[in-house]
Simulated assay, not measured.
Amino acid sequence: MARRRDDLPLDVQQALADAEKMMAADLSRNIHSVGFGKRTLDGQPDLRGHGVIFTVAIKGDRDCIQSMSIPRTLGDGMVSTDVIQAPPAEIELLRESDFLTRFMRDPGGQNRNCHNTPIPGGVEIQPTGQRWVGTLGCKVVRIAKDGSLRHGAITNWHVATGEVGQRMVQHGGSSEWFGEVASSPGIVFGGTNYVDLAVLDIQRTDGPYAPITHTVKPEQLTLGSYSKEISEGGVGTVVARDGRTLGRIIDGRCSQIGATVRVGYGGGKVALFKDQFVCTRQGGEFSASGDSGSMVFEYPAMRPFGLLFAGGTGTTIVSPAEYVIELGRVHSFQ
């Protein structure tokens, strides 16, 4: 099954490249993303098959969309296109000012509670000294600068601030930090990105952690243990995750692969990401503010699928697990 852009047939790769050129030429930035996935008809999967999916601004009617001159086919007429109207993708940090609103909406939720160490993935975390929270992805084995293997964990760059040495705590700014940022590929504004990632060092043996050698365990809060083997799934794969805000979700689906996406980072900053997954959930949301950093798994096999980092109404952007390995100096999951 095709998973990344290089896995797709050459005519589809060319069609995506042509779509990217249209996206780059769209100075009004009405085209938010292009990717390869299942075409739709009146919001339902279309039996006509797969094609290049353009996601455009939700404002405007079909005449406005047609004025963008999106062709019916690309790649010498061999690849069909489809258009979806949706809001732009944004990073979804949950700020301190949102805490009360979220609490009143859902005062429970074990994904927001403190947990004894070693803690599971899928729970709320926060950088010390900052006013936002996100989600702890999962435990990994990371490659240190000296080439040695050390216990680690992952979340998003924008959750952990991405600064080496930044300490991370659990719910409510707990005074005891469980890990610190060891490395990150960072975010390139004005360039190309493939993953929003911070890799944490979680080896603590002092204070309340002694004699534990790592503070995060290779389990998700409700989904349990996961495989070391990366998923081979692509379009149509059922996906699941634990997260800070929406908790346990087991009925998501990968709807697009190889997507090029503009992602808003606030303050007018927009980053371009390539070769991403777009995940959706019929009849509900796959993610919400505060779920940034969640690890997404193929379900029920529980093979690592990708790292969640952004979304808009009805869509969630997930970076393939391969980029966590390749760009994060991660040796393996677990």
Score class of each variant (00 low, 15 high):
Q126H: 00
Q126W: 04
T128L: 13
G129K: 01
G129R: 04
Q130V: 05
R131S: 13
W132N: 10
V133G: 02
G134A: 08
T135D: 00
L136D: 05
L136H: 04
G137S: 03
C138S: 01
C138G: 12
C138T: 14
K139M: 13
K139D: 11
V140N: 04
R142A: 14
I143R: 04
K145F: 10
S148H: 07
H151W: 10
G152I: 11
A153G: 13
A153P: 13
I154R: 05
T155F: 09
T155N: 00
N156K: 09
W157S: 11
V159R: 12
A160E: 03
T161W: 02
T161G: 03
G162H: 08
V164A: 14
V164S: 10
Q166G: 04
Q166F: 10
M168S: 01
Q170R: 06
G172W: 08
G173D: 10
S175A: 15
E176L: 13
W177P: 06
W177R: 01
W177C: 08
F178Y: 10
G179A: 13
V181I: 06
A182L: 12
S183I: 12
S184H: 07
P185A: 06
G186L: 00
G186S: 10
V188T: 12
F189Q: 08
F189Y: 15
G190E: 02
G191W: 00
N193A: 09
Y194L: 12
V195A: 00
V195R: 00
L197T: 09
L197W: 08
L197S: 11
L197K: 01
A198G: 06
V199K: 09
L200K: 02
L200V: 10
Q203A: 15
T205V: 14
P208Y: 03
P208S: 07
A210Q: 14
A210V: 09
I212A: 15
T213V: 15
V216R: 04
K217A: 14
P218D: 05
P218G: 01
E219P: 00
E219T: 12
